[in-house]
Amino acid sequence: MDKVLNESEGHFFSSRKSTSDIKGKIFVGLTQLAVILIISILFIILAVIVYQGRSKFSWEFISSFPTNGMTEGGIFPALIGTFILVIVMSIAAVPFGTITALYLTEYASENSKFAAAVRFSVRTLAVVPSIIFGLFGLGFFIQFLGAGADTAFNGGELRWGQPNILWASLTMALLTLPVIIVSVEEALKTIPRELREASLALGATKWQTIKKVVLPGSVSGIMTGTILAVSRGAGEVAPILFTGAAYYLATLPGSLSDQFMNLGYHVYIMSTQSSDVEKTMPIQFATTLVLLILTLSLNVVAVIIRSRIRRKAK
């Protein structure tokens, strides 16, 4: 007791407290610095894009075709091409991803080796570089499936054995599949066991329970997954590089076997292949701005829906 009250010990105690105080303050300062750094990087990127692109950004820019060797005019076909791409991609990826998530959460038993292998594959798929998907799409969809289909049904005439919307969309679907699977899985898990039991106890089969209780309760999760996948798919370029994106098209695509223009790809070619890079600079930035607005707003919607699900789950 005496020792604790001893003056020198008291000093020792308080001085140690102040060193840890300083260390704490330094650490807090560092974290604040990191936060400021990240926010400013984001802000600078946004500011540069908005500043550089604003002169070009207009309704006319969005709604008209490129003109004059793509040094003037708008990005309408690239915008439409991106829309078609993500729609066809979603039609392929959402049902497939939802079914996979259903298998993983509803059907696979807890210690199923197969389910573990599927989960591992999904995780691996998520970290494969996107250019690999592009090469895979070229090899599998175009050269194997497409060329095979041409030989079998088209008498060897080239129709499907070349880059087009369908193959690009399917390639993109593979890339975004993990996003959908994970989101849907998360949503399925929030359906309480009590509700499943209530349905089963009324004599519903497992499938009826899934169809009438589990899936309706997971709609917002499926939507979140779809939106995140769409926003990812709208921004990726590498997978469509060899599988369907076109440099320039004078008309909008009319069938799945046509090539298409794409926002991300448009930025890429504008900055690397253009005849006059200086002149097209504003077009590049304005295109980037459109792409950014598109993906950012999709992400915001996804975040809102997701937070609603989380609140509901609590």
């Binding site: 309480p192 106890a201 004599g203």
Partner: peptide, 17 residues
Amino acid sequence: VNIRKKIGMVFQKSNPF
């Protein structure tokens, strides 16, 4: 499924859909 149609169950925690 037929068993459960014939034998209903009410749970501890009410669980309306």
